[in-house]
Design a protein around this nucleic acid. Structure first.
Lengths: 211, 211
DNA sequence: CTAATAACTAACCGGTTGGTTGATTAGAGG
DNA sequence: CCTCTAATCAACCAACCGGTTAGTTATTAG
């Protein structure tokens, strides 16, 4: 797997990677039904057949992209060094990480939002999705356990719900910022508003988990 | 406007209503790009041209449906009798109302989620959207004002943010329940889980707004 | 009754879409 | 140098899709 890689004009891995990148961009921008296979091929600078050759069809390509993007999120989350922090502070650190990741990776929330409108039909077929999330589950469970021990976290909240609510507060704000801007006649995407929303999220979670 | 209505075989209002209902169903089920104009016409049991005759094109039809659905949400919200409740309890009543409305009207959250993936391009063109939301804004502003007076609500939270976070906690959970079920290997839509999430939302908001 | 108009219809159109065919070529192993 | 396989391509296709044309019928005002 790790042998020498002489530069090849025909390189399956490079072609696959180009298709994945182009597909991520197109799917995130236009949604599954709005995305055009021809547009992906052109953006990837690859013949359209390559896309069917390596990924089967439009659905499988979407599923592969989604899994990759989801996995990347969890990989970054797993890299956080939370052990040296008090558990309650570590949870707030997770709030901040999640928020920053969403902000830096707008494709992620758009692809996931799209997938949910499709009732997660691609994720449901992914055999890796369980493994991708194992650390995510263990991490919060351990933080809550330690937080109870340290006396800074309530014992009557399921770890799962903390994860969901952290995601909810950040994800909803960013994915719906366009209609929020219209509804509340403000610029939800200005640095000031973004900063304030992060502060609000941390405040909400902090007060919620406190015993 | 309110003259006698003899039963007509050709009735513009009935036809428009049939198209609106069919369009709401199709757009909510398939999304804007996934929805088919022919399917809407067939579901409405109406010739396709009627749809272009009364609504212009697919985009305008979507915009009209979205505005109607959004308006209905605000109309129901405005009907709540909150004046006789203490302000903090009234806010929790709003949490419960929002949750129940989302649950009863799955089309609403799907259409709105779709619209946001389209960057709210239809809502941005609606001249009525401001008027539709006026009561919504005034209602929470008044509750917070009264809550501060009654000593049950913090003075350092903008009313707008309470509305946004109430929406966030409920909307995210329901619209993303399919990927949440996969991620957390549970049935997010079971009556038990739904009931527990409502309790969690109320707990979160209650602790957040308390001085 | 009649003319004007609003409600409605069938058939059609040009461009697009996901997916395929059949052939060509570069590179690795022997 | 030769062969076999995997990588690549141009051209193509049938179904579909949003939107239109040209014309018919019901309703009603006068």
């Amino acid at each position: 797997m790790d042998e020498k890689k002489p530069p090849r004009k025909r390189d399956a891995e490079v072609t696959k990677a180009k298709i994945m990148r182009a597909a991520q961009t197109e799917f995130a921008a236009k949604g599954f039904d709005g995305a055009r296979v021809d547009a992906i091929a052109e953006l990837a600078d690859v013949n359209k057949l390559m896309l069917y050759h390596y990924f089967g069809n439009k659905d499988e390509l979407f599923g592969t992209v989604l899994e990759a993007v989801f996995s990347d999120f969890r990989v970054h989350e797993a890299r956080l060094a939370l052990d040296h922090l008090p558990a309650d502070e570590a949870i707030l650190e997770l709030v901040e990480f999640t928020w920053r990741y969403y902000l830096k990776n707008p494709d992620f929330i758009r692809l996931l939002s799209n997938e949910n409108l499709l009732e997660a039909r691609h994720l449901k077929q992914s055999p890796n999705i369980g493994h991708i999330n194992t650390h995510h589950h263990k991490c919060m469970a351990e933080l809550v356990r330690r937080g109870i021990e340290e006396g800074t976290v309530r014992a009557d909240i399921e770890p799962k719900r903390i994860n969901i609510c952290i995601a909810a507060l950040g994800f909803f704000y960013l994915i719906n910022r366009h209609s929020l801007s219209v509804t509340y006649a403000c610029n939800t995407t200005s640095p000031k508003e973004l900063k304030e929303h992060l502060a609000v999220m941390k405040d909400i979670i902090a007060r919620w988990i406190r015993p």
